[in-house]
Amino acid sequence: MKVFIITGASDGIGAEMARQLAKAHGAQAGLVLAARNRAKLDEVAAQCQALGAQTLVVVANVSEQAQCRALVEQAVAKFGRIDALINNAGVSAQALFSDVKAEDLHWYENLMKVNLWGAVWCTHAALPHLKASKGSIVAVSSLAGLVGVPGRTAYSATKFAMTGFFEALRAELKSAGVSVTTAYPGVVATSIRHRGYNAKGEPAGSSGLKEDDAMSVEECARRILDGMNARRREVVMTAKGKLGRFAKLIVPGMVESMALAALKDEVKPH
């Protein structure tokens, strides 16, 4: 049996990765599904069980270190091992920095706790078990973790931090046989941006990005899992992402223009 922990598994990319793992491994899959919404987790678990997988639902808020450790402890108590940790939980945000009032800046810290520290804490708790299985760590970052995106200063900061942490960890774990794959999705057809923070730290209710060419959840999940299975270092999702990563070293002004062009007109800085 292979045991996978997936954070942010109640919907979107996380839920789809769970379904694809269940389909691929059937009864040989042990899926530990973690998020804050029990009802949605139970629904995803039922879908995975219908495909033959064994599941464990854990209600957890990854912004709390104790809950991250408890998640890993429950996984090991149920299945006895961990073969992969998929750090997928995340919160989005869309706000021009100049529009954020001083008294509202606390949500920048809240965002960092979920997007960075949640991944750090889960990884630290799972690491001894991943070393024992010579398993895999996946960090679901964003193209905003490779190229700074205007209107997403807080989000880019958290994702750049993830990039640096997991890049360094990858080198540390090379001799231990643990792979570290960082995935960089672009715009994916999920509701994450609608639930993300606005300038006041409240749910935005809409996306500030143009989403006409959004990647499907199914395709995004498949690419991440393919990267994990191949033990690849990175999975950069789009051609623009690959171009932007290297072009910013040579023509940074062009990359900034590309980033601005991705914003809807109503949220662009004036």
Rank of each mutant, 00 (worst) to 15 (best):
K264E: 11
A259G: 04
E266F: 09
G244F: 07
A261W: 14
L263Q: 10
V251G: 01
L243H: 07
M258R: 12
R232Y: 04
M254P: 02
M228E: 06
L260Q: 06
A247M: 13
A230D: 01
V236F: 10
E256Y: 13
T238Q: 08
A239G: 07
P252H: 13
L263G: 08
D265V: 08
S257Y: 13
G227I: 08
V255S: 11
K240R: 10
R231N: 00
R232D: 00
M237E: 05
R233E: 02
E256M: 10
G227H: 05
D265L: 15
E256G: 02
V255H: 09
R233G: 00
M237D: 07
L260A: 05
A261V: 12
P252R: 10
L263R: 11
R231I: 00
L249C: 00
L243T: 05
M254Y: 13
K264Q: 13
R233F: 08
T238Y: 12
D265G: 10
D265N: 08
G244C: 09
A239C: 04
A261T: 07
A262L: 14
G241C: 12
M254G: 06
M254V: 07
R233K: 03
A247I: 02
A230K: 11
F246N: 06
V236S: 04
M228D: 01
N229K: 15
A262V: 09
E266P: 00
R233M: 06
K242H: 09
M258W: 15
K248D: 01
R232T: 00
M228L: 12
R233Q: 02
R231Y: 04
K242Q: 07
T238L: 11
A261D: 15
K264G: 04
R231W: 05
G241K: 11
N229D: 09
T238I: 11
L249Q: 06
D265Q: 15
A259M: 15
A239M: 12
A247L: 12
N229P: 02
A262K: 15
I250T: 02
I250H: 04
K248Q: 10
V235E: 09
R231G: 00
D265H: 13
K242V: 04
M254W: 15
R232S: 01
M258T: 03
M254K: 14
R245L: 06
A247F: 05
G244D: 06
L243Y: 08
G227D: 04
K248P: 00
M237P: 01
V255N: 12
V235S: 06
R232N: 02
S257T: 12
G241R: 13
T238K: 10
L249S: 00
L260W: 13
D265T: 10
V236N: 04
G253K: 15
M228K: 06
E256K: 13
P252T: 13
M237K: 03
G241E: 08
P252C: 07
M258Q: 11
V251Y: 09
S257Q: 15
E256F: 09
A247V: 02
